Computed example of a mutant assay.
Amino acid sequence: MNFQGIFDFNLRTNLLFGEGSVAKITNVVQKEGFQRVLVICDKGIQQANILTFVTDELERSGAEYVVFSDVEANPTTTNVNHCMEILNRFQPDFLIGVGGGSPLDVAKAVSLLATNGGKIEEYEGIDTFEKDPLPLLAVPTTAGTGSEVTIFTVITNPETEYKLTAGGKRLAPKWAVMDPELTRTLPPHITAATGMDALVHAIESYTSTATYPLTETLALEAIRVISSNLRQAVFNGDNMKARTAMLYGSLIAGVSFNNTRLGNVHAMSHPLSAMYNVPHGVANSVLLPYVMTFNLPAAPEKFVDIAKAMGEYIDPEVSMMENAYTSIKAVERLAKDVFIAKDFSRYHVKKEDIQTMAEDAMKSGNVLVNPRKTRIEDIIALYEETVGESAGNEAQLVTE
């Protein structure tokens, strides 16, 4: 561990974690004196009756509330604008985001616009807004995004097919209620994809050039917890020990990368999601082994640590490099075991779009902290490996 220099650790969110913690929403609303609440979610949350966990608490609190449920996967500026129309009519003093990363990202964007005005496109970058966002409580229903503690929101502009990132320390939710019971009915394929997303967060945070001892400790623990519980959560959703562990692993991975940023996997996944609507977790999972292979020579000792955290045997009789490569095999085996597609052939990504995607990826600040210095030619080569015409697709998602 490198203890040189000064680090600024950020965690602005009050965490309420554990089975039954959703009941604490009433306490927050009443203690803070909130009267009017806008709840932001997606249709799946409503259809699965997960939303009632939250609305029942709001009814107990005595606060008025309305629900905006038109958030789509890979949320767009259109979603944000429509939600703002509801907000401007209802004039809430409190926001609650319920769901995976998409509803939580829309909730963050709306919290920013509620007090600063304008369009979310005007706030790309870090600390580009002046006024504190409207208070926000996040209720994650997946174990993957870490969005309940992060200072970023990622929104797609459908006109330009570009994912913009807005952020700042004040954008993190003020509260996060993390009740693993709300993840119990998550379908296997979403459990798998979001779980792999959380693993990518941990691995990229651990290998980031901006990491330091505290974030390294969190990232390695997240790698250990996620890799030893994801299979169980996918194949038995009622296994609450595994569900709780996955939610915890996702949380600490989010706390870690919130302070370090990520790397080339996330830089490259955003254009794929924006242009081809590839689910974020799937995009990250497919890209991960390729980017790990690219990065490994720059920090082999870190990849040995990752292998150890994933339960791999480290052979003292072989070289560091050989042991480091076992981390990639472990990642590939985990993705295969939970039936994540191993390439993008099902999404019909066009090779002629690689140049545009690479240019967009290079705009990401994540490239700057990737452990291996990266040129646009490198990104192009990595895309070509994953979307080439000869790429196979033997693995299938658990649930189509």
Rank of each mutant, 00 (worst) to 15 (best):
E130I: 06
M268L: 02
G168D: 14
T209H: 07
M84R: 12
T326L: 03
A330V: 08
A73V: 13
N295T: 07
R346C: 05
T165S: 08
A341L: 10
P271L: 00
P188H: 05
N116I: 11
K169H: 11
F257W: 13
E130P: 14
A358Y: 12
G101P: 12
V29Y: 00
H348M: 04
V318Y: 03
L230C: 05
E181L: 09
V28M: 14
V349H: 00
Y383K: 04
I340F: 03
A143F: 08
E64C: 06
D353R: 03
S69C: 07
A63L: 08
I120A: 00
I379N: 06
A274I: 08
A341W: 05
F7N: 14
P300C: 06
D42M: 03
P187K: 02
I86F: 13
T78F: 05
N88E: 10
V234N: 04
V304R: 01
Q35P: 15
H201P: 10
N81A: 08
A341D: 05
E394P: 13
G146S: 12
R333W: 06
N10W: 03
Q355P: 11
L51A: 04
A395Q: 05
S102G: 04
D70T: 05
N259C: 10
L230D: 02
D132C: 10
F68D: 02
L214G: 12
K119E: 12
L214M: 14
Y276S: 03
I203K: 00
Q91M: 15
Q4P: 12
T115A: 03
H348A: 06
E332Y: 10
E59R: 11
V369F: 10
V149R: 00
R224P: 15
P140W: 01
Y212E: 00
E359S: 01
V29P: 03
A202S: 08
S208D: 02
L16Q: 01
V286A: 02
I126N: 04
L214R: 15
E389F: 09
T150W: 09
T55C: 07
P289R: 00
M321Y: 03
N49E: 13
L104C: 08
I223A: 05
Q355R: 06
D305Y: 06
Q396S: 14
T399I: 08
N14A: 04
V39L: 07
G5D: 11
A176D: 00
I86G: 11
G5C: 05
A166H: 02
S111I: 04
N295P: 08
M196G: 02
Y325I: 04
A330R: 06
L220C: 14
S273D: 08
E181A: 08
K108E: 08
N74H: 01
T78L: 03
G97F: 09
H266A: 12
I155W: 00
N81C: 07
E161F: 02
Q396C: 12
H189M: 14
T183R: 15
S69M: 04
D360H: 10
S364P: 15
D179C: 01
D70H: 09
L296N: 14
G118F: 09
V149L: 13
I190M: 09
A166V: 01
E322N: 13
V28T: 00
V149N: 01
F94E: 00
R60T: 12
T293I: 01
K302F: 07
L368C: 10
L288H: 10
